[in-house]
């Protein structure tokens, strides 16, 4: 475990905390894409299939349980909670799941390290995580003003990606570890998706303005 990986995990955790804060205290999920949240729940469900069979560390197990539990509870809140679901911006959150899920699954069937159920699903989760933010970014573009918590939520998610990529580069040079090029590609695509958002995030921060993404 290096500092980049740990910082990445913590910013990932922060993004979830920010989102839960919004849902629990303000009882609002305005500006949050249910599509993206459902995709993340699917990402964690397919990636952590080995959670009870392969033990890595207590840290890993606990974090996996947190990511699984929070992602499914967020989906539950947005769909079922009597107040929270009313704030869901359904009309603007129109991106279709299967445009992302289907290509990712087909790609995982073709490009994987081993053709086994678990390996294919693990690869699928990587591909899907890379693009799962897209419905959220589309929704941000359609929103007139992005509130602080939503902006910070996406910021922390992007930061998590950035730190993970640095961690990969670090591990590449310091450990006897390598990754398949498909893993690198998925990781780079995922991080690159945030570049545009970061530009406008810092711009609004610098100018002390409300965050707004050009359509």
């Amino acid at each position: 475990m290096n500092i980049f990986r740990l910082t990445g995990d913590l910013t990932h955790l922060m993004s979830i905390i920010v989102l839960l804060l919004k849902i629990h205290t303000i009882k609002s999920c305005a500006g949050i894409s249910l599509k993206t949240q459902e995709l993340y729940a699917l990402v964690f469900a397919t990636r952590y299939l080995d959670i009870f069979t392969t033990y890595i560390s207590l840290y890993n197990t606990v974090m996996k349980l947190i990511f699984l539990g929070t992602s499914f509870s967020i989906v539950w809140y947005m769909r079922r909670h009597k107040t929270v679901r009313l704030s869901y911006d359904k009309n603007n959150d129109t991106f279709r799941h299967y445009f992302l899920v289907l290509p990712c699954f087909l790609l995982a069937l073709v490009l994987n390290n081993r053709f086994t159920v678990r390996e294919v699903l693990w690869t699928f989760s990587l591909y899907l995580e890379a693009v799962a933010i897209i419905p959220q970014l589309v929704l941000l573009q359609r929103s007139k003003n992005v509130d602080n918590l939503t902006g910070n939520y996406v910021f922390f998610l992007g930061a998590y990606r950035g730190f993970y990529l640095i961690n990969w580069i670090y591990r590449y040079f310091t450990e006897n570890h390598y990754r398949r090029w498909i893993t690198w590609m998925a990781g780079i695509v995922q991080t690159a998706l945030y570049v545009d958002f970061f530009y406008y995030y810092f711009k609004s921060w610098k100018n002390n303005e409300k965050l707004k993404l050009p359509a």
């Binding site: 990986r5 890993n60 974090m63």
Partner: peptide
């Protein structure tokens, strides 16, 4: 060659 895509990450 053993496959190596790290699964110790989250």
């Amino acid at each position: 060659v053993e496959e190596n895509d790290t699964k110790d990450e989250l």
